[in-house]
């Protein structure tokens, strides 16, 4: 993994920062959630990349294989993916409800409407 190491970390960090930037900078509630998802997905890479050894196999003891990749990060990230999906689903459900209640999904408009009497 040595030749891919810095490159994949660079991608990871780029995605992480890009996602976080979208969350902060965008005004649209759905775009914010997209940014949040990119941010979370970047973390999956952070876990999985170091676990992979080039030429490594699944850790099953067999003739002729002596390099194994670490399977644990994959298992952890499976859990994290489930958490990410649940968060995204709940977030989108909230956006639907917000759209029903306020008639918009732009944060500025919602905040303006919140302060105005109904």
């Amino acid at each position: 993994m040595s030749q891919f190491g810095p490159f994949s970390y660079a991608i990871t960090i780029f995605l992480m920062v890009a996602g976080l930037y979208i969350v902060i900078a965008r005004n649209n509630l759905i775009k914010k959630l997209v940014g949040l998802s990119i941010f979370q997905t970047a973390v999956y890479l952070l876990y999985i990349v170091p676990g992979k050894l080039i030429g490594g196999t699944a850790p099953i003891v067999a003739e002729g294989y002596d390099t194994y990749s670490n399977p644990l990060p994959h298992v952890l990230i499976l859990t994290a993916i489930v958490v990410g999906i649940a968060t995204l689903a709940l977030g989108l459900a909230l956006v639907v409800r917000i759209h029903e209640a306020f008639g918009t999904i732009e944060e500025d408009d919602i905040l303006r409407e919140e302060h105005a009497p109904r």
Binding site: M16, K32, L36, F39, L46, T87, L90, F102, L111
Partner: peptide, 26 residues
């Protein structure tokens, strides 16, 4: 209806917080 917006904001902030935690743990 402001509860929805409050919950959404908490979801964004809370998820960023939890993701930072998981980066640290990673």
């Amino acid at each position: 209806r402001r509860a929805l917006v409050a919950s959404y904001q908490y979801l964004i902030m809370g998820t960023i917080g939890a993701t930072f935690l998981v980066i640290g743990i990673g």
